[in-house]
Amino acid sequence: MTDVLLQIANALVLGLEAVGIAVIIGGFVLATVVWLVNMRRMSTHEAYVDYRRRSVRGLILGLEFLVAADIIMTVAIEYSMENVLMLALIILIRTLLVFALHLEIEGRLPWTQSEDDSKA
């Protein structure tokens, strides 16, 4: 029975990793297509800022899937202190990356309100 659960967990991890990679690639492809369309109606700077926002959002969402895959792999498949510490380091690095990306595209920390949020 445990072999079946292990195979299911492995398949789930591979699926989540594939979705994460697809989301990252899809985010960049979509951002590039929108950027090419926007180049005709926006200034170069506005189109560039919009491109960065769209591509970074895809990257952040893809990283969430990859973190979920790492958590499942560490807890369900390869549970050891070394793997738990490696997972903690991966999550720390990805969390810092997401905060830095969010700060770059939004111009504010994730827990602070934007002007749009304060008006609602």
Rank of each mutant, 00 (worst) to 15 (best):
V34G: 01
S43V: 02
R54I: 07
I72A: 05
P110W: 11
S55E: 03
T2N: 13
V49Q: 15
G58I: 02
A47G: 08
P110G: 02
V67P: 00
D70Q: 11
T2E: 14
S80P: 03
Y51S: 03
A68P: 03
V23A: 02
V4D: 05
A31P: 06
S114L: 07
A76G: 10
E115P: 11
L12K: 01
H45L: 14
A11W: 14
M1V: 10
V29Y: 02
L89D: 05
S118C: 01
L109A: 14
L6V: 04
I21N: 13
S114W: 00
E104H: 09
E104A: 13
D116S: 11
A88Y: 04
A9T: 04
A69L: 03
D117C: 00
I8M: 07
G27H: 09
I24Y: 03
L101Q: 03
L14M: 11
I90L: 12
A100S: 09
P110H: 08
T32C: 05
L92M: 14
F99H: 08
Y79D: 15
V4E: 12
E46M: 14
I93E: 02
A11V: 01
A68G: 09
G107H: 03
I91R: 03
A22S: 15
F28A: 08
I71W: 01
L59K: 02
A9S: 13
T2M: 08
R54N: 12
G15L: 13
W111H: 09
Y79E: 10
A76P: 02
M81E: 15
R54E: 09
A76N: 12
T32W: 14
T44W: 08
L63S: 12
R53E: 11
L92D: 02
H45I: 13
E115D: 15
M81Y: 07
E17S: 05
F28G: 15
V56Y: 10
A31D: 07
Q7N: 10
F99L: 15
I77N: 14
L101V: 01
A88V: 12
I24G: 04
H45A: 14
E115A: 13
N10G: 05
K119F: 06
I72E: 11
I60L: 08
I91W: 13
V13T: 12
V37R: 10
T32G: 15
A100M: 07
R54Q: 14
I90V: 14
L59V: 02
E78D: 15
R40V: 06
L103D: 04
G20I: 00
A47F: 06
A18P: 04
R108F: 00
N38R: 13
R108T: 03
L97E: 05
L96P: 07
Q7K: 05
I71F: 05
T2H: 06
I72K: 06
S114H: 00
S55T: 07
E64C: 09
Y51C: 00
I24M: 12
D116I: 03
P110Q: 01
V23I: 13
E78W: 04
G20E: 11
R52V: 10
T44R: 11
A11H: 13
G27D: 01
